[in-house]
Design a protein around this nucleic acid. Structure first.
Lengths: 238, 238
DNA sequence: TCCTAAAGGACTGTTTTCAGTCCAAAGTGT
DNA sequence: ACACTTTGGACTGAAAACAGTCCTTTAGGA
């Protein structure tokens, strides 16, 4: 079995784990915030519960929460009916002005262009409950009404909502994970308001196609929408 | 933001890590063997190197290797030019006769039906090097020539090879991971030799379509091939 | 024949992570 | 007012995982 460009390497040299539990926990929570899974002012589960869900000890979780708190992402209230809340005053993110890695950009865009249209098509084919339809509409209206500040998490939330309607847990995971990688890249380029308008129109088109059960249209609209992000991102490669 | 069927739950309650480093390492190495990434009689990298690649300490890695050794998966030779080798005498796997989880079966099959045809189509569109073409042919001939014992790893290897030709690292990862989940399911049902013949024909069809750059044919052949596995597996759900 | 290099084997002390326990704060209801 | 409950906060001892060091085996070459 040759080793040069193929061979064992690719899946073997991959680290078994991302890092230590402390850092991984910070990353994980930060990601859920940036993906809009926890919106500002929303309450996280109690520490004991969250620790169990994340599979880390409460001590480790608390270290992570403490870090995020002092970084301004979380606010904590003690006592009964207290808890940990996502900070409403969005953390001022200074654009991470590292250069974009072209290979990473292409990889994310390509993978995304495979799974997201498929998710949209599946969602359109699915037999959606009333709650599901409402969920999509809520996410759509929230992203449409969003100002530039705080747009990205709501955008991500919408795309994940589409994946959720597909009914495939693996797809949801893949879309969320890929979106997270995409966010890292988008954080390095400016947010243009003309893009937002286009995006909002396309989001509406996708949602409508899904709600009326038109799978090909949902797929096509998603492909078009992704192309917008793709060319935007590619434009900043040069 | 409602919580009932959607909401935060899905990505938050996911454990940050799979378990302890020791068990994760065992799982990881075992998976690479079952995926055919390391073939029997093949030598693993030296412990020091492997430990670094996997991101675990050498002590932990050694614990895992020791476990796999006493389980019969690995054989160890000391001294210069020694090393850790994949056991040639395949471990007699008693069929894990737990019942199949229908939700898991459907999830794996659905996700697979999205990414593998896409990977095949991309591979066909790609501008393949001579080494790449040869790699695919080698994997094809190895799986075609394989007896029933040891078929699964070579089958997996072929599918992963296709994904590798797509040139998308994320796709390779997704295919490998999904295949690993599929293997768990396939281990619970018997291996029928008529299926092998069909599978071999379809593998050939896929490989030929890719090599002549016929993306639609590669995609179609892959879809057909996956349907075979899908109906086989669904047949055992009842 | 002996030396050397490359590999696995074994040990040690430190850091991280854990499970478990108890404390402190702050609403709610009687 | 008071007790109760739910939450975060703090501590402790044990276990896991780590990095680093040294030992042992073995084949090839001087």
């Amino acid at each position: 079995m040759p080793d040069s460009p193929f061979g064992p390497s690719f899946s073997m040299l991959r680290p078994v784990r991302g890092g230590n539990a402390f850092e991984e926990t910070i990353e994980h929570i930060l990601r859920t915030i940036k993906l809009g899974i926890f919106a500002p002012a929303e309450k996280l589960p109690p520490e004991r519960e969250l620790a169990e869900q994340l599979g880390v000890s409460r001590a480790t979780l608390r270290d992570a929460l403490g870090e995020l708190q002092s970084a301004g992402y979380l606010e904590v209230q003690r006592g009964r009916y207290g808890g940990t809340y996502v900070s409403t005053t969005a953390v001022q993110r200074q654009p991470d002005q590292g250069p974009l890695d072209p290979a990473e950009v292409e990889d994310v865009l390509l993978f995304r262009s495979i799974i997201e249209p498929a998710a949209a098509a599946l969602a359109a084919k699915a037999d959606l409950s009333a709650a599901a339809r409402r969920h999509l509409q809520v996410c759509l209206s929230e992203v449409s009404a969003s100002p530039a500040v705080g747009y990205r998490p709501r955008d991500a939330r919408f795309h994940i909502a589409v994946a959720e309607l597909s009914g495939s847990a693996s797809l949801v995971g893949a879309v969320a994970e890929t979106r997270s990688r995409l966010n890292e890249l988008l954080d390095r380029i400016p947010l243009l308001s003309t893009n937002l308008e286009h995006a909002n129109e396309q989001h509406t088109e996708i949602a409508e196609a899904i709600l009326r059960g038109d799978a090909p249209a949902a797929e096509r609209a998603t492909i078009e929408h992704l192309e917008g992000t793709a060319s935007l991102l590619r434009g900043f490669l040069a």
